[in-house]
Design a protein around this nucleic acid. Structure first.
Lengths: 344, 344
DNA sequence: TTGTAGGCGTTATCAC
DNA sequence: GTGATAACGCCTACAA
């Protein structure tokens, strides 16, 4: 009697003595259903251990319940936080998260994304920086008619497609803080050129100096690549200068940690000989000694919000739902890696 | 003429003047196909931009192309590395990765996993520790007839279901190294009780001391929870002892970093006043100052191997494929956080 | 409130 | 080699 494989809607219908459609109604909680019928069907469902087939459902509904996360981000903690935030929004829904790291750099990157989106026919996708900064992926989504949200360091798209932080302003705030402590020779370890976030943070840095009327020798800007190793090299370049900078703003924590590393390696103490400010507030920032003054951005909230934007149509019978914000202010976290310079 | 939505196999068949089945054969690279027919169909496919619908395919084939990753692991870098390793194995296949963090602790954990597996009908799942150590999830997979692989600190299952490291032995090696340098008072910051990895590492620690005939005061073992905060508290407890330990093995890097943090906070220098060994070789281990001596385990290789085990049936027309290993030896990485004790 | 017929886009069967 | 026809498991019309 028991066929191999799992029971289907037909089995339930047959055993419960009703039509498939009635079972379907039970599954989908149709309101117009006799209580007795429903009870009977539910009874059979639980006896059989029937579970609807999502693939068949997706086919019939012509849409599935998959949300994609596309990223080419080197920061593990950030990606995990994004996943956590998105999954929080998707909790108790039938949506699942499918992750797709891609290779920026690769010449076929855009084709890869296109293939992925076309094949999977996702309900929606989220893009993380830096790939999110690429206008062509947004264009692609529009062409394919697929819901998308981009995460970034500045507003690049319409509100329903964007969650952004205010990198530029918060860096200005951070550097102003250094200036207010008396620092004048402040170094910058910049991020990679292709990254919008790198540009924003650099702009914020320059705005602060300009606002304070400090003229900036070009040599006080060193290029990094958001990695520890490049941060180390950049820090060494800055610390080789004479006179040395008394403070360094590194465009992310990884490079800030490298700066600390470089300073210690040459016997300098932090913050006495050198103040350091990072960006991201990743685990390393609070775990190294001394703990890093850094910029915290609410990644989990941003990701949750992004997922909710993606799911807006799904939740949105009540069109008057509170609209999700698209700008998420970052904040400066004061810790022990910053102090006034030794010699005023 | 253009209907809304994407072209289907029917459109291709109609325009190419062949049957659906022929188109299907082209898609699936059936060998018995006239070259002309194939060329014509491929022409139409590319003109139309036709992409097969994976949901329909999944329905017809009665299996999909999704691999699940189930974890409740607090270590972001580890999870990301696992994802990277699995995706490496899945590259250029039509498989996709769907991630599912779960809440250990939750009383409905097992039910959640069951629902997830039953609904999604995945091709296979990978479990990360610590949930992978739970025998009931393996039991569940067997019951549901779903392919699974577990990752762990010791061999818990048959080779085709397991990728394991040798935590116990490598910790013994690490502690022997400390002993050979002259350390006698060696502290342990243990991991949480529920974790097999915590047990293995503790066992390795005890084996080394026993092997050297060192009797271990109970107070030299402090409990941690694999988090920075608990590591900090545990380290403080050990450093409050008198006499102090001259070396501490922390069961993971997070807690080792915390130990370093605690030591510096009280003005001790590392490794002069205290040697520290961690476990995991996460980014923080090499980035803090001094860089941590720690245990490296080949997570990416393990994850790649695990995915290949999952996909063995799929790849495995050639049954004589090289079998994937299931034991992956970890290695001790010597860095600057270890030195001989100050007073012999 | 419930059931029937037909379709979603693909693959398997088995003729031709 | 190729093509009707019938699954696969569900859902949306439209009837009853």
């Amino acid at each position: 009697m028991e066929r191999t494989g799992k029971p289907t809607i037909n089995d339930v219908a047959r055993i419960a003595g009703v039509s498939k459609k009635t079972v379907s109604r039970v599954i989908n909680r149709s309101p117009l259903l006799n209580g007795d019928t429903r009870a009977k069907v539910e009874q059979v469902i639980s006896e059989l251990g029937y579970v609807p087939n999502v693939q068949a459902r997706a086919l019939a509904l012509r849409r599935n319940f998959l949300i994609g996360l596309i990223h080419d981000n080197p920061n593990a903690q950030m990606v995990m936080n994004v996943q956590a935030g998105m999954l929080e929004a998707m909790r108790d829904t039938e949506f699942e998260l499918i992750v797709r790291p891609i290779d920026r750099g690769s010449s076929t990157m855009l084709e890869d994304v296109r293939n992925f989106l076309e094949r999977q026919r996702l309900y929606g996708v989220m893009f993380l920086p830096p790939v999110s900064e690429n206008e062509m992926v947004a264009e692609l989504c529009r062409e394919l008619g697929i819901r998308y949200v981009r995460m970034g360091s500045a507003t690049l798209d319409a509100s329903e497609h964007m969650v952004a932080s205010n990198d530029c302003d918060v860096v200005t705030e951070a550097v102003n803080h250094l200036i207010s402590l008396g620092h004048r020779r402040i170094g910058l370890i910049a991020g990679p050129h292709g990254f919008r976030s790198a540009r924003e943070r650099r702009k914020g840095f320059e705005n602060a100096l300009e606002g304070a009327g400090i003229k900036l020798p070009r040599s006080l800007i060193a290029d990094g690549n958001y990695t520890f190793e490049t941060g180390l090299a950049a820090a060494d370049r800055l610390l080789d200068l004479s006179p040395r900078p008394t403070a360094i703003f590194a465009s992310n924590d990884e490079m800030a940690a490298a700066t600390l590393h470089a300073a210690r390696r040459r016997g300098m103490s932090v913050p006495e000989d050198l103040s350091i400010v990072g960006f991201d507030d990743t685990a390393i920032a609070s775990h190294i000694w001394p703990p890093l003054t850094t910029v915290h951005w609410p990644i989990i909230s941003m990701a949750r919000s992004a997922a909710l934007k993606l799911l807006a149509d799904f939740f949105g019978d009540d069109g008057n739902a509170v609209e999700e914000p698209s700008l998420f202010p970052s904040t400066l976290i004061h810790r022990a890696s910053v102090a006034p310079p030794r010699e005023g």
